[in-house]
Structure formats: C-alpha cells, structure tokens
C-alpha cells in the first residue's frame, strides 16, 4: 500500500504467528464456489406479455389513472402504485428515445457483434421505453427520434421468451422531433388523448385471455 498512509496504530504491530507455523506458506485467498438455484416465475403481467409475444404480438398495460401505456407490463403503474389490469395490444413499430453504441462484450451474449446499438424503444402508443437492439443501421446513422420496426425471428424460432425480436431496424419514415422523442413526448400524448385527437397513437384494447 501507499507508503504515505501510516497504518492505524492498532494495526501497526506485525502479526506474530506461533513458532511452529511461522514458516508455513500463507494462504492468500480462499475460493468458495457458490451455487444457488432459483426457479423464477414471470408473474401475471409478464406471463401475459410472453404468451402474446410467442404469437408475435406485443402487449402493454394501461394505467387505470390516466390511460398511460406501459410495455412490457409489470402489473403496476409505478407513479401511483396501483395495479394495472387492462391489456392493450401495441404495434411493432416505434421510435428511438435514446441509444448507446456499445463496444463492450456481455457475458453470455457471444452472438452480439461489436459494436452494437442498444436503444430505448418507444412503441407507438406506449408511454415508457424498453431496451432493444438496433440492426440494419450503421452506428453513425442512429439518431434519437429515428423511426424503427421490429424484425422478428423466423416463425420456427419464436417462443414464449423475451428474445423473439432479432432487432429493430429503421423504417425510413421521418424522425420524431427531439423534443417529442422518448419521455419528452408524454405531455403532448396525454393532451392528445384528453381531446380525442390522439388517434394515431392510441392503442386498441386487447384481452390476453383471448389467446
């Protein structure tokens, strides 16, 4: 350690080992492998989401308080701590709220070529974003507000997992303006909902039980 820092007086005295083990090689580290197994359950909201996702449909939940739409759904509107029970089906199109060009490999994701773009995807009609991979897009071309659509895996690879969408690719449509992209667009969407002109971004109600 740095010579500048004196040891605390109480710890300054060298440790005196008993004579008979004084010359034994010191233990420098102990390796204790820990293995604990957990059997997770997804919960009601995620279960409905994953079931629909297995049919290439995207389910969100609508807040009973002000109609804001959450995807993926977690069974709660975190602003008010109230349960969300109404499901809405969302299109597989949206825009990028913000993004990160990543040069760091992730444990367990050897399939990701570096660099890759991870982005907050705001689906049309949704009021929070969720993380997705952006593909078919040069890293220099990615923009906040860029319109994207889902590229689903082939049908024979679709399952009830979160990984059914390979990536999100640019649609070529005009960008969402920066000040309306991501969370910044929420106030305007709410106003549109309130006066009934929010048609374009208003998702339809869906019943998860219909699957």
């Amino acid at each position: 350690m740095s010579a500048k820092i004196p040891k605390p007086t109480a710890l300054a005295k060298p440790v005196q080992l008993p004579e008979r083990i004084a010359n034994v090689e010191q233990v420098r580290s102990v390796r204790t492998p820990i293995s604990l197994n957990y059997d997770f359950i997804p919960g009601q909201a995620a279960q409905a989401y994953l079931t629909a996702f297995g049919e290439k449909r995207i389910l969100g939940q609508r807040s009973p308080v002000d109609g804001a739409v959450f995807v993926p759904p977690r069974g709660v509107d975190p602003r008010f701590g109230v349960a969300t029970t109404e499901y809405v089906e969302l299109p597989d199109k949206g825009h990028i709220g913000s993004f990160c060009v990543t040069q760091v490999p992730i444990p367990g994701r050897d399939d990701l070529e570096l660099p890759y773009i991870s982005a907050w995807i705001f689906l049309d009609g949704a009021d929070i974003g969720f993380i997705g991979l952006v593909g078919e897009c040069d890293t220099a071309d990615c923009r906040i507000g860029m319109r994207v659509e889902a590229v689903w895996k082939d049908d024979d690879q679709i399952a009830q997992t979160a990984e059914n969408i390979k990536w999100w690719r640019p649609t070529g449509e005009p960008d969402v303006a920066f000040d309306q992209a991501g969370g910044r667009g929420f106030a305007a969407r709410q106003a549109a909902r309130a006066d009934g002109t929010g048609h374009a971004s208003q998702p339809n109600s869906a019943n998860p039980a219909s699957q």
Partner: peptide, 25 residues
C-alpha cells in the same frame, strides 16, 4: 449485475450501457 433473469433481454452491458443514453440526451 447480470445474474440471468429469464424474462428480459440482456443487452445492457453494466451501468455504462444504462447511463450512456441519458448522457447522450
């Protein structure tokens, strides 16, 4: 930080991946 959670996609490499989009904004 990346204990496998079966119901989400893991493409966020640690805290940097989380905060980078915020810094970009």
């Amino acid at each position: 930080l990346s204990l496998p959670q079966p119901f989400s996609v893991s493409i966020n490499a640690g805290a940097g991946g989380y905060f980078s989009p915020i810094i970009r904004q």
